[in-house]
Design a protein around this nucleic acid. Structure first.
Lengths: 235, 235
DNA sequence: TCTCAGTACGGTACTGAGTACCGTACACGT
DNA sequence: ACGTGTACGGTACTCAGTACCGTACTGAGA
């Protein structure tokens, strides 16, 4: 259902609302657009809008809750032996989600940069990921402060790469993500005599975190990551 | 003005509103309290409330803007030679602000833990400090990612100590702050061959960051910091 | 075909935050 | 006494979000 048998799939109410909303945001700005106007352009009633989206902001952050659940699931499913890899895979999950959103992510980025309330919302959302990471990391790492610092660093590294991609500065964001995560590992996993340390660091981890992906892409990603890494290392 | 000559200083409208607001928050919760109710209990009109506070949330985060300005000022005033110390002093400024707030900080903490919208607000506020740190650090440190990670870590370390104090777990939060910042320095300032590195690490920095404080308290703080540090270091 | 239940939708009315505007009282300096 | 600024209260408005009700469509079973 929601797609008639014949021609192109008929957009759902939710999709029509989202389309109308972003059109109006472009034309009049976020604050200048009322929910009534969105519903009217989508050809539905105001009530229907609030049935499709819990709030006006949720039009812009549509799949946040599901993604958060996926992240938690990925972390919970990980065995204790591969905790660090689990954190990487989970944060990579977030990055890939944004990459898949494509244009929507870009438009949201523009909006969050210009509308303070949306920026707050986005930050708060990121904090939820950080919270998930933090709680998970703390279970395997004794040090509370250290776990907190690492969780924050994972999120930060993710955000740096994501922002670069959103600004069109990153040709291969996934490779950059691996480089960034490698730096995080160098920071946290490469300690002197620390017990409970996270094992090896550097390019090895890059390969491991690619485990769930298409094998043919691994070689290229590693190559790009190493090239990037070397460029940063010794100038 | 605003204090009559004679007995105790007459509370300003702003103070009366804040008092009334927190009373009602305790009695009925944040969402269950309307601005009308706050104004009524304070004995003023609704309009006056919005003249004293820009929003209902601002009753709970009253001096945020000023503090942010102080942080920016402290960073801008720092000479390039002591960048790391400037970051520490600025983040210490934030911590001390909360410590000085005393009971208000505790009540806000309780509220932010139970009301999601307030938690978002608090997180967004912290992000502004992080932004100030990030932009400052990036000017002296070439590496964007590294600056971002460090700024995030400074904020995180601050928050960990602050939360411990708010939960009544920290006897000497300032000393714990110094320990936490020392760990951050170990993480970021103690690199192998990195140029632009942040010089020495460890307890030395603790002394330096105390430069602006009462000299008599330095000895005790250093002693406490070292004791704490040793307890964490070799168990 | 009729009926019944579930669902999806629209409409109305309400609460509450935040804004704009106007009127007024009470401080001052002259 | 006379303006003048300022602080305050009141009214009326916009808009997000909620609650509730009525109705049209749909599909299963008799």
């Amino acid at each position: 259902m929601a797609t008639s048998e014949g021609g192109r799939p008929r957009p759902t109410v939710r999709e029509r609302l989202q389309q109308a909303a972003f059109e109006l945001f472009d034309e009049q700005g976020y604050d200048g657009t009322t929910v009534d106007a969105i519903a009217e352009r989508a050809g539905v009633g105001r009530t229907t809008f609030f049935r499709a989206f819990r709030s006006k902001e949720e039009v812009i952050f549509p799949h946040h809750d599901e993604l958060l659940e996926q992240v938690r699931g990925r972390l919970d499913a990980a065995s204790e032996r591969h905790s660090l890899v689990a954190v990487f895979e989970a944060s990579r999950l977030v990055l890939k989600h944004y990459l898949n959103e494509g244009e929507l992510a870009q438009r949201r980025y523009d909006l969050t940069r210009s509308v303070p309330s949306l920026r707050e919302r986005e930050i708060a959302g990121m904090q939820q990921y950080q919270r998930a990471f933090r709680e998970y990391i703390r279970t395997w790492m004794g040090d509370e402060l250290r776990a907190e610092l690492m969780a924050g660093s994972v999120i930060t590294a993710h955000n740096v790469v994501l922002r670069r991609w959103l600004r069109g500065l990153a040709e291969d964001p996934v490779a950059e993500f691996d480089v960034a995560m490698t730096k995080v590992v160098e920071l946290f996993g490469d300690r002197r005599g620390d017990p409970g340390g996270a094992g090896g660091a550097g390019a090895t981890v890059v390969v491991v975190t690619h485990a769930g992906d298409d094998p043919s892409s691994i070689a290229g990603a590693v190559e790009a990551a190493l090239r990037n890494d070397l460029a940063h290392r010794a100038p």
